[in-house]
Design a protein around this nucleic acid. Sequence first.
DNA 1: AGTGCTCTTGACCATTCAGTCAAGAGCACT
DNA 2: AGTGCTCTTGACTGAATGGTCAAGAGCACT
Lengths: 214, 214
Amino acid sequence: MPTNNTKERLLETATEMVWRNSYGSVSVDEICKAADVRKGSFYHYFKSKADLALACMERECDEAIGIMDRIFSPGKHPIQRVLDLSREALIHQREVQELYGQVCGCPFMTLGSEMAGHDAEGLCAKSDEVSRMFEAYYINLVRDLGAQGYLPASIDAVSRGEETYRYVVGMIMVARVQNSLVAVERDLLHGLFRIIGLRDEDVEAFLREKTPAA
Amino acid sequence: MPTNNTKERLLETATEMVWRNSYGSVSVDEICKAADVRKGSFYHYFKSKADLALACMERECDEAIGIMDRIFSPGKHPIQRVLDLSREALIHQREVQELYGQVCGCPFMTLGSEMAGHDAEGLCAKSDEVSRMFEAYYINLVRDLGAQGYLPASIDAVSRGEETYRYVVGMIMVARVQNSLVAVERDLLHGLFRIIGLRDEDVEAFLREKTPAA
DNA sequence: AGTGCTCTTGACCATTCAGTCAAGAGCACT
DNA sequence: AGTGCTCTTGACTGAATGGTCAAGAGCACT
């Protein structure tokens, strides 16, 4: 899995370790050891531990954008986006759980919550930025649902989008703390429909139309 | 505000520092200095740093139970409990924001997320336990709403209760990361009604009945 | 063969970390 | 006055921390 490239190896190892545990509990020495890199090389690529963490976030963020763009693709039916969001979130959490041996939740929220208050190297600003970017996807989704008549014209897309985002964050954060995906698997999708405000009939109609054979 | 009692002073100071920042970023020395206590005294009362953190959580938990018992009092109308929950959560977050100079979110989730993976001194087990206890309040609320005909008999109170709890957690965690209570103030209550699944008419009827003068 | 560059190495540093300990202060009970 | 207890003190330890540095390895270009 890891590349031969030293910098990439550091980023990958650090991402895993920080995400699994926390920024504060992982030392530069440990990261170096796990990545089989000497300390000097580390400080050739990164000017500090916080700088490494920031680079990890940026890497994760780029990857996340790709995934989110697929899930929230404006080319898809907005209800399909909700289905995909729920499905992909669960699959991703399960993959990471298997890979890292534990439910890890959202790396941006985890780090952002830990760093809140001591803005080392702009780490906390970055979490803020990422969370607001994520919100934008949800707001966009709500807007499309409204435009297609699935939601009353009166609703505030920003409010509803942010509520929806925060519901997902809560689902996933609690899953980390409880180290369990049971509730995510059982409830994420239905909660999404409800917090968004979709009518059951509309969802059912969409599902029927999607699989006319059933 | 702080008592003369050394142990209490340590607990109070540590709670504030850990909640504001994080467990990993606060050192025993710093806590001692801020509480004006010498290191030896610290280790007279607590056998380790993790032990102190656990004691802080237990103290916070006891206080939280008192507040939750009031909010979710079975003697109140269940819709009133929702109103109170939203109101008290905002007030509490605002108080802490003013006191500590920043939005701090939920101490149990913050610590629980940071500690996930390295279960020092049962800290992580405690967060898990607290989060499940909180869920119980929400499940109980949903059950009462169902029993009084506000929700369809078919719904699963556990699922819905947990979804509701997680929505609130998400709201508050994102508020911490973004260091802003705007969305909490604007959306928490309405999102609560929607994630629980209350009908607008029922809520409005309850509000009308409550203030017949208006 | 020599120059200049990036990357690597391992020894090194000052500081901070959690935690220890022996000695004593304060106080209550006899 | 003496005993026994809890609490306090400050000096101490050894390990770990984030970070530095000078020296060199490897390689490409001339």
